[in-house]
Simulated scan of single mutants.
Amino acid sequence: MTSTRRDGDTWDLASSVGATATMSAAVRAIAARAERSPVDDPFAEPLVRAVGVDLLTRLATGEAPPGDLVAPVAIEVAKVRTRFYDEFFLDATAAGVAQVVILASGLDSRAYRLSWPSGTVVYEIDQPRVLEFKTRALAALGAAPTAERRVVAADLREDWPAVLRAAGFDPVRPAAWSAEGLLGYLPPEAQDSLLDTITELSAPGSRIATESRPNPRPGDEEKTKEGLDRISARWRAHGFDTDMARLRYFGERNEAAPYLAGLGWTVTGSSTRDLFTATGLPLPADDDLRMGDVRYVVGTFGSSSAS
């Protein structure tokens, strides 16, 4: 499995960035099994099983315990993050936003598991192999979308807006956009370009949800890389070849909230700690990757002020 990022690289759900989507789904499956969990994702486990990576399958099904592979903080963060995006979409569509765009959708199954209002269209954007696999796997499970689902097979480094429009997206009507777990896998300039393009495609009343880390303090990135290297070493010891630090882009970048505010979005933000407090869950102490500092950002386009 190739882990190092390079220009023009591609992937499926068992390699490179695609494998991180499968790992995230495995963690969601673990989180969904927890007592009194706010996560309701019945498709996470069977989708991981369909990808066919043995270790991830055993983790997702509970055959193998998380042990030192999946830190408690990662499982707890999966709970609050999944709930955050679920509630974002349900709030937006309840307010009348009928177009939903899930960027880098991976094994996201919201088009199949959320109770969407009648008339909602969900556009899923990802690489062709990823979307083809997920569509086929969910059909084999007998699952049917709970909204009108349209796949947008496009690389975010290419002219994905043209493919999105060709699928029926109307930039004159408001949309709800998610960039979940995405920005850290983009170079800083590509992150800005993505947010610029989303803004260009957004009618007044559109909404966006994403996460971003605060810019690093001296020594922070080295600690994060060391933490990722330790995690990767544990996975490799169990036969899963990954190099998490080399999949991410580091360095100074614009934080999402002020950048979006500068583009005309009214922005609010909550830290991971805030989400834990709102959910009534404690943030675990073993937070080597500073997940507690991640900010979850919600924006509405075309409002008169930003906060």
Results as ranks from 00 to 15, higher is better:
D159Q: 10
V122S: 01
P174A: 07
E124D: 12
A98R: 14
R110Q: 12
A140I: 03
V80M: 05
S105N: 05
E148F: 05
R113C: 08
A137P: 08
L107A: 01
E158N: 10
E87Q: 14
Q127F: 14
G106S: 09
E148K: 08
G168F: 06
L107W: 01
I102A: 15
A154I: 02
R83D: 12
V80T: 09
V121I: 14
T120K: 05
R149V: 01
P117Y: 11
F89H: 11
T146R: 15
K79R: 15
L141I: 01
L138A: 09
A154T: 01
K134Q: 07
D155M: 05
G106H: 02
E87F: 07
Y123D: 03
D159F: 10
T135D: 15
A92P: 11
Y123N: 05
E124C: 04
G106W: 04
S118D: 14
R136E: 14
F84A: 02
L103S: 08
P117L: 10
F169I: 00
F84V: 01
V172I: 08
R110G: 10
A143G: 09
Q127E: 14
A92S: 15
E148P: 03
V121F: 07
L103G: 05
Y85R: 03
V97C: 13
W116S: 13
E87T: 12
V80E: 02
V172Q: 13
V172K: 14
D108Y: 07
P145T: 03
D86G: 04
P174I: 00
W160C: 03
E124K: 01
R150G: 11
L103P: 10
P128T: 03
D108V: 02
V163P: 10
Q99W: 01
A166S: 15
V152R: 01
F84P: 02
S105R: 06
E132D: 15
S115F: 10
T82R: 13
V100P: 12
R81P: 03
R150I: 03
R113A: 08
Q99F: 05
Q99A: 06
V97D: 06
R149E: 08
A144F: 05
V101W: 11
R129I: 02
P145M: 05
D170P: 04
A98Y: 09
R110D: 03
D159H: 11
R113D: 07
V101I: 08
P174K: 04
P117F: 10
E124I: 00
W116V: 03
G106Q: 06
L107M: 06
L103T: 04
A166T: 08
P117Q: 11
T146I: 08
Q127M: 14
A153V: 00
A104N: 08
V101A: 12
V80P: 08
R157A: 14
F169R: 00
F84G: 06
L156F: 04
D86P: 04
E124T: 00
A154N: 05
A140K: 12
V122D: 09
I125V: 15
V172H: 15
T120H: 12
S109Y: 07
V152T: 00
V121A: 13
L164A: 11
F169V: 00
A167S: 04
A144T: 10
L164I: 00
L107Y: 04
V151P: 13
E87H: 13
L103W: 09
P161H: 02
T146V: 08
R113W: 05
S118P: 11
A166K: 11
R81Q: 12
V172T: 13
L90E: 13
F89K: 04
A154H: 04
